[in-house]
Design a protein around this nucleic acid. Sequence first.
DNA 1: CTGAAAGCGCTTACAG
DNA 2: CTGAAAGCGCTTACAG
Lengths: 334, 334
Amino acid sequence: MAVTMNDVARAAGVSLKTVSNVLNDYEFIRPATRQKVHEAIAELGYEANLTARSLRSGKTRMLGLVLSDLSAPYYAELASKLMKVASGRGYRVLVEQSGATVENETNALQGPFRQLTDGLLFTPLAMEADAVAAGRGNKPVVLLGEHILDPRFDLVTMKNEEAAKVVTAHLLAGGRRRIAVVGVHPEQSEGSGGMRLRGYRKALDEAGIEFDPELLAPCTWRRDEGAAAISALLDRGVTFDAVFGLNDALALGALHELLIRGIEVPKDVAVAGFDDIDEARFASPSLTTVSPGMDEIAERSIGLLIDRIEGLEPTDGGVHVEAGFILKIRESAP
Amino acid sequence: MAVTMNDVARAAGVSLKTVSNVLNDYEFIRPATRQKVHEAIAELGYEANLTARSLRSGKTRMLGLVLSDLSAPYYAELASKLMKVASGRGYRVLVEQSGATVENETNALQGPFRQLTDGLLFTPLAMEADAVAAGRGNKPVVLLGEHILDPRFDLVTMKNEEAAKVVTAHLLAGGRRRIAVVGVHPEQSEGSGGMRLRGYRKALDEAGIEFDPELLAPCTWRRDEGAAAISALLDRGVTFDAVFGLNDALALGALHELLIRGIEVPKDVAVAGFDDIDEARFASPSLTTVSPGMDEIAERSIGLLIDRIEGLEPTDGGVHVEAGFILKIRESAP
DNA sequence: CTGAAAGCGCTTACAG
DNA sequence: CTGAAAGCGCTTACAG
């Protein structure tokens, strides 16, 4: 059927092992032999069978990427970048959507998905740290995001608190005093949301402005929820002169609602977000936000994972990487 | 190391073949035997080795998805849906980004990527029909999109021309007479762009309105290009009372530019797009557009591909599926 | 309904 | 530097 290594070996007049050596770039091969093999490969149009290679070697050269939903802009952009970086190092990325449920996350961590990959880039949103630690098996896992911050794990994350503080300070520097926060999760002090809220509060503290819980608009991190949350705030008669969306989707939802209500942005209310998704640049008005260094996150997380797989990362405990960030000042909060 | 079928066979006191039969739901197995095997599997925590299965059976139960860039909102949403549909039928989706270059598309079609998948969902953007036909090999390929319309291929597409005609007719019904078109490719009569432009012209014809080439704003399909194209049109002094973006990103870019210039939407200029990406609902003003039936596209394309793989689709020639569409009337063109 | 054997196409010790 | 053999863990004919 297909051309096999055996056919190549026969055509080149060498043994199977020699063909394998050539394919795997083994150092000590006589140049003449190497050339004979390469000629036979070219002549026969041989292509290595990846499945057979995987079965024998136990490696698939695929990395798993577990995230809640690929259609979310942030994840779509991240996945795209991760694939490009991985490709540069000879790996593919296989994506699994968890919908942020414990069941699906557990499945991705322990089920057949795991077999198909040499290591996992895992965004835990529902599972707790102990469950992840118990179920991670012995292939490398690198955590992405902030839901779990635990010295047991390799982790690549962004500077949530610090960046949120900088955004908030920027709004304060623009003269804003009552900054509503959209996307707060009531009882959550962990995760991206909790950390960004902490950054917000620190900025207020440093500016000597009292924190007013009235200004918190709780909702899940979806655009329509952001619109609804800001709408509810306005209906309750809460006054504010700025909105900080805990991510861009929320900020854009809020922006939309403000404009519908005839509130001018940034004149009456300034708006800022977090993530710098592509859309932020093209909103009307364009959105002031924080770019959390996605390129760096992609490079470092893939790098760390592959180093673990190939045994190039010597550190014993969890490696913790924090990517840098950049404040993007645009029209919505100049 | 890991638990194998052999271990299960030994524990259950049956042969390897019997375990295989149970795992593959072979009909004629004595219930008692089946149960013994299931008990042994549960007791030992056996999980089938997918790589070994693939090597022997020649099937990976993975589908390849080739598209230009996963970070484009339309593709991200499509990929997310395709994965969910495929998962329901027991397949995974492996994504390959081509960047719309001939080289990468050819690689995805003929290179090692192909080995990893039982069939391909392929969005050709750079390759020509003959090259695809020559290189597709003997595993099933289903084309997505409109760049290649050819009876030799299975194809799932949207009603570009018809839907564009309906959008244009809607603008005309609202009293607009000079409708600019953003995203035209100068010499391209094929592909989504060409077909949508044809729909636009048909609507004009039927309304008895003369076509004015001045109103065509050529650019590639990116948001910033849309903004720049409409800007160029305005700078040239071309007058218009509506804009039809050949996709939503273009329409949103144009919308942004119009608002910046102090042109009121929809009062001065109505704006409509194509795709109904999530963002369209939340733009300010929200965007009138066409929903091209992405759910249906996902269902039908995965269904067709898997039917081909499993030999369930009897048709000899290429099957051509056209998904339905819905006009979404929103604020930008009521 | 079930069994014993072969083999998918590689890589990996083991020799030399 | 290269060879002959074993074996990764399954499924697939072939028997019975």
